[in-house]
Computed example of a mutant assay.
Amino acid sequence: MPEEKVILVNENDEQIGLMPKMEAHEKALLHRAFSVFILNDNNELMLQQRAANKYHSPSLWTNTCCSHQRDGESNLDAGKRRLQEEMGFTTELKESISFIYKAPFDNGLTEHEFDHILLGNFNDIPHINKDEVADWKWMSLNDIKVDIEKHPELYTEWFKIIFAESFEHLKL
């Protein structure tokens, strides 16, 4: 199976090329991404714990799911696809804010992403893909904020950045 490619973009989110995902992360090149935040009717966020076999940030807690758009795929279609692949459900999503962030990892890879925040509502139990997700839980936004301050080592680097950047926009 060929390696997944990411969409390289400029600071205006205009596509400038395609590159294998690992190469883009090794070279820290700016590429398009999305982060899905699923909230329930109690305004709690569904967090996922990454599977222990992930090539970076294994077993850490993060937002509901995130990934990269495929060439020609809309942000919303990409978010729905990945939500189904990782968490085993789909729901309507809406676009929120977008911004650029950069997060280096200990293994030499760097996330340098033009990230689109996607919001959705769900009140049921997900059917997680154990190859991608070790566990999940609902947590209030304020409790997440406090827990990140107390235990930052439990969360992915990108989630800490994205959560802080989008905290005020996490409303349906």
Results as ranks from 00 to 15, higher is better:
F99D: 01
F99T: 09
I100K: 08
Y101G: 10
Y101L: 13
Y101M: 10
Y101R: 06
K102I: 08
K102W: 02
K102S: 13
A103T: 02
A103Y: 08
F105Y: 13
F105A: 07
F105E: 14
D106N: 09
D106F: 01
D106Y: 06
D106R: 04
D106V: 04
N107L: 15
N107T: 13
H112P: 11
H112N: 15
H112L: 05
H112C: 14
H112D: 08
E113R: 01
F114L: 03
F114V: 02
D115I: 11
H116Y: 15
H116V: 15
I117V: 11
L118F: 05
L118K: 09
L118V: 02
L119G: 02
G120M: 06
G120H: 06
F122I: 01
F122C: 03
N123C: 10
N123M: 04
N123Q: 03
D124A: 07
I125Y: 14
I125C: 10
I125P: 00
I125N: 08
P126D: 04
H127N: 11
N129C: 07
N129P: 10
K130Y: 08
D131K: 12
E132W: 11
V133P: 04
A134F: 03
D135P: 14
D135Y: 15
D135E: 15
D135I: 12
W136S: 01
K137T: 15
K137R: 14
K137E: 13
M139Q: 08
M139E: 12
S140L: 03
S140Q: 06
S140N: 02
L141K: 10
N142M: 12
N142G: 08
N142A: 11
D143T: 10
I144P: 04
V146W: 04
V146M: 06
V146S: 09
V146R: 07
V146G: 00
D147H: 09
D147T: 10
D147S: 07
D147E: 12
D147A: 06
I148G: 01
E149N: 05
E149W: 00
E149M: 10
K150G: 05
K150S: 10
H151G: 03
H151Q: 06
H151N: 11
P152G: 01
P152M: 01
E153Y: 09
E153D: 12
E153M: 14
L154M: 06
L154T: 07
Y155L: 00
Y155N: 03
T156S: 15
T156W: 02
E157I: 07
W158V: 14
F159D: 13
F159E: 05
F159C: 01
F159M: 11
I161C: 07
I162H: 12
I162L: 14
I162C: 14
I162E: 15
F163R: 02
F163M: 05
A164C: 08
A164V: 04
A164K: 15
E165S: 14
S166N: 08
S166A: 15
S166F: 09
S166Q: 06
